[in-house]
Design a protein around this nucleic acid. Sequence first.
DNA 1: ATTTTTCTACCTGAAAAAGGGGATTTTGCA
DNA 2: TGCAAAATCCCCTTTTTCAGGTAGAAAAAT
Lengths: 208, 208
Amino acid sequence: MIRVFIIDDHPMVIEGIKSLLTQSSVAEICGSAQTGSTALEALKSMEAEIALVDINLPDLSGIELCGMLKKQFPKIKVLGLSTFKERSYITRMIGAGASGYLLKNATREELEDAITAAWRGQLYMSLEAAAILTKPAPDTPDLPLLTAREKEILLLIAEGMTNQEIAEKLFISPLTVDSHRKNLLAKFGVKNTAAMVRFAIEFKLIEY
Amino acid sequence: MIRVFIIDDHPMVIEGIKSLLTQSSVAEICGSAQTGSTALEALKSMEAEIALVDINLPDLSGIELCGMLKKQFPKIKVLGLSTFKERSYITRMIGAGASGYLLKNATREELEDAITAAWRGQLYMSLEAAAILTKPAPDTPDLPLLTAREKEILLLIAEGMTNQEIAEKLFISPLTVDSHRKNLLAKFGVKNTAAMVRFAIEFKLIEY
DNA sequence: ATTTTTCTACCTGAAAAAGGGGATTTTGCA
DNA sequence: TGCAAAATCCCCTTTTTCAGGTAGAAAAAT
């Protein structure tokens, strides 16, 4: 029997999962907690194999908690659990090391499949969550078209180079760099470099 | 038979996949390309169901190409293919809408499993890739510990607010904001705001 | 060939940030 | 209570960026 620990701030969710798994031949509940910190403490004296982690906890986000769980209890596999169908939650949870993601409308069968897959070292994604991930991303707002030179200079700005440094690197005048910088500010509709860098990363115009 | 299009800059990889799938009862190769742009063009006049996309192409990254494929051909499921075992490639590929990720050492069976799962709308992750994702993240470099106030001010800086604006928002002196800003620069080991914002996003100290 | 876009360069001055210090008060914790 | 850390505030100077333009040459598109 795979030992499962539940972390959710809603007691009725905890009870619901317990009820679903009561007659499971696959998994048994070894404990539960309503906050991330309580869970971290409880898991120190408990042999859990799987943690079902709600994305929204009162003290920590599920994403943060997942990272902490993986670090402190590397043997435990984490499954994210949420009502949220947001692709960014899913990808961040996976990025944090989760072995899967379930929506809270999961059937007992899906729960068991997820727990079993995670326990085997597989990545489990419910059909519904997979559909969210694999559908085309929503149309991003029309992004400004940057010239090649603007892109080049944007990268260098984001590395922290001053106009003078960039000018020396590209064999142009610092005044020219300044002109490009102003064009970038105008195209992004922002008023300074901080916002420019953030915009560029947010809209994947540069990588980090 | 599931129609599969291969995109890889190495002809020997394309041939290898073709060879593996020659006697497949599941999939058939309907075409191939060595660059992203060639693939996008070819797929306009081709009924492919699955695209196997190499992460490193000469013209586009596999991640970019995945996004473009999902946008222009929403019906096509994308599977990432790489020698790279880097978690960030995997998560970014999934974030771009891929239905799975395979390493180039995959067996015919794994290839077929991936293609079938993707075709069914599931997310496929090879055992090896899943292991990379679900193992505890490598120890990040020791990140600077920020005080609560520093975090607060970092967020506002990254939104593009000036010291004066932040001071008014927090009911403190602009000089205080400046002090925190200097502390942040020192803690991050960077010399200006552009690099500060980038560092903060890169190391997930702020979100965007 | 013409038009449009991009790149380059410049001007001036104000605003903002960065550098390099310093100090006092407040807060949290043992 | 005492101590360390955090928060707050200050000084002065220099550097850098931003605002708000202008304009010509080169490259690209038509």
